[in-house]
């Protein structure tokens, strides 16, 4: 089962290494991890997608790190999730039309066109990226890169805060 957590950390050197080292040390499995600045330059936010049955230990171990400020586990449907993907697919001349039609449905943007391939940029919810990939598989995927998920809790009903901060 996948869980999505947002980890707000102090923007200090090495904090990504601390988080990823802790995951390795405690034998927690990371599916994806993104990190970037936030509205406050002193803070970064990580979005971590974790494989595993339960989150309690992971959340607690994250809080044990001195630079962790806040950990929020997102409830499915109560957060906005986005991912960006670049995918290069085989596109022989005679099939280009149907590929581009499919791409239109997914609002996939052709960002590079070669003699034998088209590269699409797709932005959206992870399930939408998966659906697009499923269709493109029939044409043949040459290469693929994903950004990892970024997530923000919805404004009206914020994600459950399972854990109060304490070290």
């Amino acid at each position: 089962m996948q869980h999505v957590i947002s980890v707000t950390v102090e923007n200090k050197p090495g904090v990504l290494a601390r988080v990823s080292s802790m995951f390795a040390r405690r034998d927690f499995n990371i599916h994806s991890l993104t990190v970037g600045p936030t509205e406050d330059p002193k803070r970064s936010r990580m979005t971590v997608v974790v494989d595993g049955p339960e989150m309690e230990q992971i959340v607690k171990q994250l809080y044990k790190l001195i630079h962790t400020l806040k950990v929020v586990e997102h409830v499915p449907g109560e957060a906005v999730e986005r991912e960006i993907m670049l995918v290069r697919v085989n596109a022989e001349a005679q099939r280009r039309g149907e590929i581009l039609d499919a791409a239109t449905i997914f609002e996939a943007k052709a960002v590079d066109v070669g003699a034998q391939t088209i590269t699409f940029e797709v932005v959206g919810e992870p399930s939408r990226l998966a659906d697009f990939l499923e269709i493109m598989k029939t044409y043949g995927i040459v290469s693929l890169v994903k950004s990892g998920r970024i997530v923000l809790a919805k404004d009206t009903k914020s994600a459950t805060k399972k854990q109060r901060k304490s070290a």
Binding site: I66, L69, S166
Partner: peptide
């Protein structure tokens, strides 16, 4: 300056 460290 340890905003993330507040032992109970």
């Amino acid at each position: 300056d340890l905003p993330g460290y507040k032992p109970s």
